[in-house]
């Protein structure tokens, strides 16, 4: 499975792990992963530690998530980015919309 999700033990954070390629084939699965989020989760983290590549479609998916979660209502963290992936997120100016760590 290339996409897995979990809540933190205190239920406040929802974490999405993307393994391998983060691109078009994940569109549906990614959208579904956050479709019925618990009320308690006020932060969403996308964990890129096992992500090898991303493309513009992945950027679109992230923006879509932000929009469907009410653009800024919940804070979205893009965490554990390798330098190459961070570079792509920065080129896209995603640091203005997300917390990149």
């Amino acid at each position: 499975m290339t996409l897995s999700t979990e809540y933190s033990s205190d239920g406040k954070q929802f974490v999405i792990h993307v393994k391998g390629k983060f691109d078009f084939p994940l569109v549906q699965q990614f959208r579904q992963s956050y479709s019925d989020l618990n009320e308690s989760a006020d932060t969403i983290a996308v964990d890129f530690r096992e992500t090898e590549y991303i493309d513009s479609c992945a950027l679109g998916m992230l923006l879509n998530m932000r929009k469907s979660l009410g653009a800024g209502e919940k804070s979205i963290h893009l965490v554990n980015c390798r330098p190459e992936i961070r570079n792509i997120l920065e080129i896209a100016r995603f640091d203005k919309l997300f917390h990149i760590d």
Partner: peptide
């Protein structure tokens, strides 16, 4: 569109930057 949220034109912009 680069800074909008439309998801359009972003791909080639990445190529241009990289």
């Amino acid at each position: 569109q680069a800074l909008t949220e439309s998801g359009f034109g972003r791909g080639l912009r990445l190529v241009e930057e990289l």
